[in-house]
Amino acid sequence: MLLERGTSGPPVLLLHSLGLDKHMWTPIVDRLAVGRRVFAYDLRGHGEAAAAPQPFTLRDLARDLFAVLDELSLETAHVVGLSYGGAIAQTAAIEDPGRFASLALLATTDRAFPDVFEQRAAAAEAGGMAAQLDESLSRWFTSEALAADTPGVRYARDCLLAMDPASWARAWRSMKELDAQGKLAHFPAPVLVVAGGADASGPTALLRGIADGIPSARFRELPGVPHMQTLERADEVAAVLDEFLPRD
């Protein structure tokens, strides 16, 4: 179930976005694995974990992160979360900051938007996943990528169509529990916050606010980069993470 690259070096654990799976990281994982051991896994309700126990809360997903670390015999890891993965990573960092060697938050939020999240959950229950394609993909990618129907767009479309609407709904409802704003002010490990300048879901001001709430955090904005950073501008995302994460 794990995606693994690298044979030595500091361990890095990657958490994917809602609606996708661990292969969201494929465009950058080989570069990150130079001098590092890199792992990615499928979150509950996604990919090979589609049949994992449900319903679930955001704290359940945070504890899954700790269970993965335990399974890998890792006391700590450098944790990278994008969007939903960033929400899970923050929740876990609040619960047990000692398991983190560092934290990188990409295109995420530190607070819930309950009405928006409930609308997305209910829409899938009512209309199925095919009806979520246009709205979701337009939030995730630039118009140029959509028009070109790039491999990243095709991958995301396939993931959405394969997802159980009930799992999509449960994931969005778990996001309604997110409450990380101001709670990582004393987080002891290095933090990187990365915004995409063309991100309709996670605008720069929101990501900058997250960084401002963590005095030790570094903030980077990647101009022209949309929400699904690794699927459209992999080289830039890999470069900023490669600079931040230690290696052998």
Rank of each mutant, 00 (worst) to 15 (best):
Pro10Lys: 09
Leu13Lys: 13
Leu18Trp: 13
Asp21Thr: 02
Thr26Ala: 15
Thr26Met: 09
Val29Gln: 02
Ala33Tyr: 04
Val38Ala: 08
Val38Asn: 13
Phe39Val: 12
Ala40Asn: 01
Tyr41Met: 03
Arg44Asp: 03
His46Ala: 10
Gly47Met: 02
Gln54Asp: 14
Pro55Lys: 03
Thr57Tyr: 12
Glu75Arg: 14
Glu75Met: 00
Gly81Lys: 03
Gly86His: 12
Ala87Ile: 11
Gly98Gln: 14
Thr109Glu: 11
Pro114Ser: 01
Val116Ser: 07
Phe117Asp: 06
Ala124Ser: 09
Ala126Val: 07
Ala126Cys: 01
Gln132Met: 15
Pro151Arg: 01
Gly152His: 11
Ala156Ile: 07
Cys159Phe: 05
Leu160Ala: 10
Leu160Trp: 03
Leu160Ile: 15
Asp164Met: 04
Asp164Ser: 03
Asp164Trp: 00
Pro165Arg: 00
Trp168Phe: 11
Trp168Leu: 08
Arg170Thr: 08
Arg173Val: 07
Met175Trp: 02
Glu177Pro: 11
Ala180Gln: 01
Lys183His: 13
Leu184Phe: 10
His186Ile: 06
Val193Met: 02
Ala195Tyr: 02
Asp199Ala: 03
Arg208Pro: 00
Ile210Cys: 05
Ala211Val: 04
Ala211His: 04
Ala211Pro: 03
Gly213Phe: 01
Pro226Asn: 03
Pro226Trp: 07
Arg233Ala: 14
Asp235Arg: 11
Asp235Leu: 10
Glu236Leu: 15
Leu241Asp: 11
Asp242Ala: 13
Pro246Asp: 00
Arg247Thr: 13
